[in-house]
Design a protein around this nucleic acid. Structure first.
Lengths: 225, 225
DNA sequence: ACAAAAGTGTTGGTTTTACACCCATGG
DNA sequence: CCATGGGTGTAAAACCAACACTTTTGT
């Protein structure tokens, strides 16, 4: 029986939300070495009997207090450069989480502090977390085009304008409100009308919708910029 | 200092090519326990000082003899269910490799045998490799739509018809040769004409092309089926 | 000359874009 | 009544599927 090289495996999280009209990522201040006191992505070691997805969900809950049910969570990719962790060989399986606007998270067990930071201002994170964050943002941007993922940034019930705002903020580009409306209301199974309306955005009352069952967006949302 | 759970990490490969007008995957017969004698995806343990990408490239070369330069290699995703390997906790980072038609591979160090199998006939692989293979094929199908990835299945120089054949075989759908031709020759930086022609497909000589520098396909190739 | 495959032109229908315009509310 | 945003109509432009047709080879 040969001996297998020994690794530790962590699950790290790129948690994105929209706050104050900005695309923000969740960062925590590390309470332990290495990189103690520096900002990093939330995450932690996968336990011996735990599935990767489950570990990511647990970390999300521990470090943010977010109920996992309301959050979209998907695997992003893995990172395993030999020297990415100074302690020992660590492979991290990064996950991408998208959440509606939520209360400011409280510090968890391993984190001295936790906060939302606009993605363009999240720099110099610990380990290789700058690159992981960039990959996560890039994935989110790409998936808005051809999936209903933008709805993950919205509350349970939302208006077409709120959904459009998600696109505009994530992409950093303006979209025509009229054509956007036609497009998303025309896409099969994307939106389910609740029947009620709201005036929370001002002006004429807007219909409220819930996410539909669509898993892809046909035709895709054209990204002009 | 806390103790970190111990994992082994492997790099497994979904290697796809087109042979005899079929989309084929590379499978190896395992020479060692567990699952000795059964078919599995090629792969092996990541070494203590080796990057994940490098491990995948090394395994590809070891188990197939393919020169890595001619092969497209990208990370697929990671799999880490607690019981996926009966020996101990193993997380595998799966990679997707796309290669032009190549000589039948020879068995490597860990593999008693190696061969190309049409993807629809690759079933009952060891570990969770059925699922990994399915994910790899799905990824390849999806990426043909909006990336120049189909060219990875072609030789260095190829004709438009050969490229079209890739789409037809991977998607299992027929495409109009005329419109396909216009589309791919019109896409910016997708194809670079070599200036020479070939009659290897019969009929009127066809121009030969090399891959261009494009990283995405605008507009995407419409998948009708 | 004929078959076979490459490649171009054309046409009619769909989709997209840009914007005019009306609708329903709060102040 | 006015400002504000929600939502519909519409014409010009762009795009695309389908297929007739021409080109260039091998036999």
């Amino acid at each position: 029986m040969e001996r297998y090289p020994i690794f530790a495996v962590t699950a790290d999280l790129v948690v994105l939300t929209i706050r104050d009209d900005r695309l923000c990522a969740l960062v925590v201040r590390r309470g332990e070495a290495p990189f103690q006191g520096e900002w990093a992505l939330p995450g932690g070691f996968v336990r011996p009997d735990e599935d990767l997805d489950r570990a990511a969900a647990r970390e999300l809950e521990e470090e943010t207090g977010l109920a996992v049910g309301t959050v979209h969570l998907e695997q992003l990719r893995s990172y395993g450069a030999p020297a990415r962790d100074p302690r020992q060989r660590v492979v991290t399986v990064a996950y991408l989480a998208l959440a509606p606007d939520l209360p400011t998270p409280k510090a968890g067990t391993d984190a001295a502090d936790a906060r939302w930071v606009p993605v363009e201002r999240a720099r110099s994170l610990a380990f290789d977390h700058d690159a992981i964050l960039a990959d996560g943002v890039e994935r989110a941007r790409a998936k808005l085009e051809y999936t209903p993922l933008a709805t993950a940034f919205c509350a349970e019930e939302f208006t077409v304008a709120e959904l459009r705002r998600v696109y505009e903020l994530v992409w950093g580009a303006e979209l025509d409100p009229r054509n956007f409306h036609r497009k998303v209301t025309g896409a099969a199974n994307l939106l389910v009308p609740t029947g009620s309306t709201t005036t929370r955005d001002g002006g004429r009352p807007a219909q409220l919708f819930r996410r539909g069952t669509a898993t892809t967006l046909h035709p895709p949302m054209p990204r002009t910029a």
